[in-house]
Write a protein that binds this DNA or RNA. Structure first.
Ligand SMILES: [Mn+2]
Ligand SMILES: [Mn+2]
Ligand SMILES: [Zn+2]
Ligand SMILES: [Zn+2]
Lengths: 148, 148
DNA sequence: ATCGCTGTTGCGAAAAATTGCAATAACGAG
DNA sequence: CTCGTTATTGCAATTTTTCGCAACAGCGAT
């Protein structure tokens, strides 16, 4: 037993016919230890430090695999792709296109929209990591001298 | 005069110190003619048919440029990047992760969330092309035999 | 119409991400 | 524990996307 709910996903993985490999554990660990949003390249470096034999292609394949299993979430910010451990409570982000600052908002803020779409369109929204781009409070003040 | 509001963006481009080149017109045309969401590769083929000399690198650079000018919108669906002419009214999409079907929803559906975030967090959301992933009506019926 | 400044492009090279395939190893059965 | 099946990995080759830079060309000024 290490951290998060390891042991849970181990059996869940095996039950579905997938295999629990040291590579998958290392990669999941690396994402977890990175704390926040991390890139395949960062994951690779972290894993490579412990296990130099692990190939970069395995990183790409595995993050995709872990995402499909919903153990991690994927987010694309200005072209780059980031991964993060999927906690029990989903969260989302506001990304400032001026200063690049990223702030977090919780699921409750957006879930109203999701349920309304589900009621009106019978479409079950499952997005668990949204990135809304815009202008943050600080940059708005700066950009507005007096006018408008 | 051709279509959309050409002539408007031409001067807007020049006013900002950018140049109106045949490549940029061809690429904008290609995206427009594609109708819906299109990829850099598709844009390239379309442009290449008319002007074989245009380089693929120019496609990538130009879609980025046009996106910054907000003449087109960028959307990432399951890893792939798509572009589309930015109409006067923004719209968004519901993407089914089972069948891949994409349906459109209009800005009014989501704008409530945006204004609420603006009021509560002073963050001005400008996202004009959201892709919400989930399960469409059809796939939900199929996947639910009787239970739950 | 010509000139000069500098934003853009084409081109080749580099970097990032994906894929096919043979070798490896997880893990259920005996 | 040993074996056999087959999911997974490492590796090399491909494909996709980005980058540096010299040549080119848009466009304002003359
Ligand atoms: Mn996050
Ligand atoms: Mn669209
Ligand atoms: Zn900002
Ligand atoms: Zn569907």
């Amino acid at each position: 037993m290490n951290h998060y709910d390891m042991g849970n996903w181990v059996s869940r993985m095996r039950d579905q016919g997938f295999r629990v490999t040291p590579q998958r554990q290392l990669i999941l660990d690396a994402i977890y230890e990175s704390g926040g949003h991390t890139t395949p390249e960062e994951i690779y470096e972290r894993v490579h430090a412990k296990a130099p034999a692990v190939n970069l292609a395995t990183i790409y394949r595995t993050v995709d695999f872990l995402r499909e299993l919903r153990l991690i979430t994927e987010m694309s910010i200005s072209g780059k792709t980031y991964y993060e451990i999927a906690g029990d409570a989903p969260h989302h982000h506001l990304v400032c296109r001026c200063c690049g600052h990223i702030e977090q908002i919780d699921h409750a803020t957006v879930v109203g929209l999701f349920t309304r779409i589900e009621q009106e369109q019978q479409f079950k929204v499952e997005t668990d990591h949204l990135a809304l781009v815009g202008v943050c409070r600080h940059c708005r003040e700066q950009a507005t001298p007096t006018a408008s």
